[in-house]
Amino acid sequence: MEPEIDLAAFKKIGMIQQKQKEYFAMRLRTVGGDLTAPQLKKISEIAEKYGKGEVHLSTRQGLEIHNVHHTNLEKARLELEPAGIYMGACGPRVRIVVACPGEATCRWGIIDTKILAAELDKKYFREDTPHKFKLSVTGCPHNCAKATENDIGVMGALLPRWIASFCNDCQLCVNICPTKAIERLEDKTAKTKKPGYILRKKKCINCSICTLSCPANSWVIAIKGYNLFIGGTMGKIPRLGTILKKLITSKEELHALIEKSLRYYQREGRKKERFGHMIDRIGWVKVKEELLHGKQG
């Protein structure tokens, strides 16, 4: 028998009807894919009690309990909440925020991804949008959390600077820079008669490879901040995110630009149109101008 329930309202909190119509998948709210051991125990307990004793990991760090009978959904939800486990989201709204481990544990990490992801989750989670809306925070240009495949993608970024006096001319940097942004020039620093190392800023992708690897600490961090990508999506019509602004040093500015981007999409986006496709419809030049210099918030 088909249950008489408000499917849209259920979807909003991540309770998704399966093709076995009486059964639902319970999508949980995680931030950056983090859960505590007690929370995992609770989820396991609920999956055994109300599901088939199985949990499913989504492609975006989400956790789902499948095969829950519709009459048990509310009970399961109420038993999860005291453990700090809340329902997720589905449908046209802001989904769970993904993040890589970031500087807390990863040696390449430039920013604290967990704090930023939690801030974004707190501000925007489950807000209604024209189509699904995904945010990601990745600690550095290695891009493990795929910032460029999300509607909003924040990436830790730095600009290196070369300090001549420390350099031992080993040439490691020239050989490991992923974009060949570092060039060695013989006798450029004429005074010292030592070769010089030049950064080609246009080629530099702002990673932490040279600053972390240089054996003489000759590459130092001149600017540390965020690269902000917007309009990325996978799905039926994939589109990589476009860089809105590089090396944003203030977190306030970053938050303001994300806010502006989301509001713009909520105002201008058409039903079933992802943010990136809206950007292509309106035109990047106009969108960029609006987001960086426009008045409307």
Partner: peptide, 25 residues
């Protein structure tokens, strides 16, 4: 080439020359 020199640095040793030999260094 990305990981070994960095780990070597973390252990307190110093890379003093890297020569590109094509697909090896």
């Amino acid at each position: 080439i990305l990981n070994v020199p960095r780990s070597v640095k973390e252990e307190g040793h110093q890379v003093i020359k890297v020569e590109n030999l094509g697909s090896t260094f």
